Simulated scan of single mutants.
Amino acid sequence: MSVYTPVSAEELAEFLRQYPVGELFGFAGIEAGVENTNYFVTTTGGAFVLTLFEQHSPEDLEYFLALMQHWADAGIPVACPQHQHDGSMLATLKGKPAALVARLPGSHLETPTPEQCAALGTILAQMHVSGQRFPLYRAQNRGHEWRMAMGNKVLAQLAGDEAELLRTELNHQQTIPFGQLPTGITHADLFRDNVLFNGGQLSGILDLYFACNGSWLYDLAVVVNDWCCQPDGSLAIPRLQALISAYQAVRPWEPVEQHYWQATLRAAALRFWLSRLDAVLNPRDGDMILQKDPTEFRDKLLHRIAEDQALPANIMLDARRLLCPLPVIRVQEAVENLPAGVTVTAVCTDPGALHDIPAWARIHGHRVLETRSEGREHTIVLQTGNVE
């Protein structure tokens, strides 16, 4: 939310007369963010955020504002757009499209707890589910094609290890069938600075101006890469497990999502490394421009690659000829310290395992994908989740 377009008090006071919000009391530019011009605005009628859109088309703005209203009506704590006296939500200021939204209570989190990550996982899944009833469509502008194009653009400006890393990752990303992943409405930028907590409760979802129709799994990966990482970029497993478990309690993953989870984490890390690299290498003009450090997401990408290469896609456990409680113990030992999203397949001959292993899994936050019997052998397929 950098300031590219300065606004005077007189210009803002005149602009506000289009809204039933009272008289201007004060305002200040917001330094965080990178895309649009934003101000905190206080009037005699309340507190608001003013956004001047620097790049978006009228069709994009119709989508964003209607989506804000849709999610607000669905009970999602988003910043609701203010309506002008004539009922419209979009106005013009300094020759640019502008909107005024309610300023929500709360503050951003520096280091979220697992409980706060779980709260966000629940809200994100609810956003995805309720978004299925939203009638408008907006294509991704930071999707796979953009990542490939931007990657090749900045690749020409890099050298050494960074160039080799980017070249290798671009080649890997070309092998991932992103088009097979389930899609719907996504926020696409749900970082910690776009979420508010107030009194221990999630109180606000902000900055919907990257929202689009895209992969739900990618939206979740964007969240994980910001909310569930240690300072060095490695995953904070308790936060990761809490977030994914809470998300899947509302919208369980489909098998294709489970299969491509690690690849999608890499894609999400790549996207923000590229956008930050481009902002540094090819800066835009502006009055208060925030440039975020690209090395943060370069390091996160390196960690996601290492985790992907080290992680077995599917763990097979032979628990045949073991009697209760040994099959459950074998599974428990296998999943201990595993991150969320790993598939574990146990083959047993004790028929009691068909009940005991799923019961144990559900108690401990894992998801039962499948149970089946063939003759004397019984197969239970789990996906790791929130480990107690």
Rank of each mutant, 00 (worst) to 15 (best):
A340H: 05
E333R: 10
H366E: 15
V342I: 06
R321S: 09
P325T: 08
P358T: 03
V368C: 14
T345A: 01
L369M: 04
A359G: 09
V331I: 11
M316N: 15
W360D: 05
T349S: 06
P327M: 01
A340G: 07
A306E: 07
L369R: 11
P339I: 03
V328T: 10
I357A: 09
R321F: 05
P325G: 09
H366L: 15
I363R: 15
V328N: 10
E333C: 09
A334K: 12
T343F: 14
H364Q: 13
I357E: 08
P325W: 04
V331L: 11
V344K: 06
V368A: 15
T345N: 01
E336M: 13
A334R: 12
I315E: 10
P339Y: 05
V335H: 11
G365A: 13
L317W: 12
A359V: 07
D356T: 03
A334E: 12
D308V: 07
L317F: 12
V328P: 06
L323E: 04
Q332M: 07
R367D: 03
E307H: 06
R330K: 04
R320H: 01
Q309W: 01
N314I: 10
I305N: 14
A346L: 08
I315N: 11
P351L: 07
I329Q: 02
D318F: 10
L302T: 00
R330L: 01
L338I: 02
D308L: 08
R362A: 14
H303G: 01
E333T: 10
G352P: 02
H303C: 01
Q332E: 08
L323W: 08
Q332F: 02
L323Y: 08
A310R: 12
T345C: 01
P327T: 01
E333Y: 06
C348V: 00
A313E: 13
V331Q: 09
R330H: 01
Q309Y: 03
M316E: 13
L311C: 12
G352L: 02
V328A: 10
H355P: 15
I357C: 08
G341T: 05
P358D: 05
V344H: 02
G341C: 04
G341A: 07
T343K: 13
N337F: 07
D308S: 11
P351A: 11
V328Y: 07
R320T: 03
R367P: 02
V368H: 13
I357N: 09
H303Y: 00
R362P: 13
I315G: 13
